[in-house]
């Protein structure tokens, strides 16, 4: 566990720090749209993890030019292209859910939503 080991794997530590920043935003913010921004940061950290695994030092982008070259791994690039599109789809769904929640309850605040939910529960218990 020497210093060189930590320097040689710096991409992973950067990814973990970024991912946990996104996770912290998701956990600590009250506003639902801010939570979605945190989820986006989380997703980008996963993309960075895959792309950094595909990188080969001294390699170039995987485009054939006719010259013998060392290419970086194209497979993670393909997977992440798909993942980016899936990420924007889930973000769109999450945002439209947030818009719908705001329409129905008039707030996007987590604490406010929990209070409304408790009030509804109390009402239904009393009416029984």
């Amino acid at each position: 566990m020497d210093k060189n080991f930590f320097l040689a794997n710096y991409n992973y530590w950067a990814v973990v720090v970024l991912m946990m920043s996104g996770f912290y935003v998701v956990l600590s913010r009250n506003h639902l749209i801010k939570k979605i921004v945190g989820l986006n940061v989380f997703q980008v950290s996963v993309f960075l993890l895959y792309i950094s695994v595909g990188k080969i030092i001294g390699g170039t982008a995987p485009i054939l030019t006719g010259k013998p070259e060392l290419f970086s791994n194209p497979l993670p690039h393909v997977l992440i292209l798909t993942a980016i599109v899936v990420a924007i789809s889930t973000t769109a769904i999450a945002l439209s859910l947030a818009v719908r929640i705001h329409e129905a309850f008039g707030t996007l605040d987590e604490a406010g939503l929990i209070a409304i939910e408790h009030a509804i529960e109390r009402e239904s218990v009393q009416s029984q």
């Binding site: 980008v44 993309f47 792309i51 950094s52 595909g54 990188k55 390699g59 170039t60 982008a61 995987p62 485009i63 290419f71 970086s72 993670p76 690039h77 992440i80 292209l81 980016i84 599109v85």
Partner: peptide, 10 residues
């Protein structure tokens, strides 16, 4: 990190 296509999309 050589992923030009991914960079376009992102």
């Amino acid at each position: 990190m050589d992923a030009v296509d991914v960079a376009f999309t992102e």
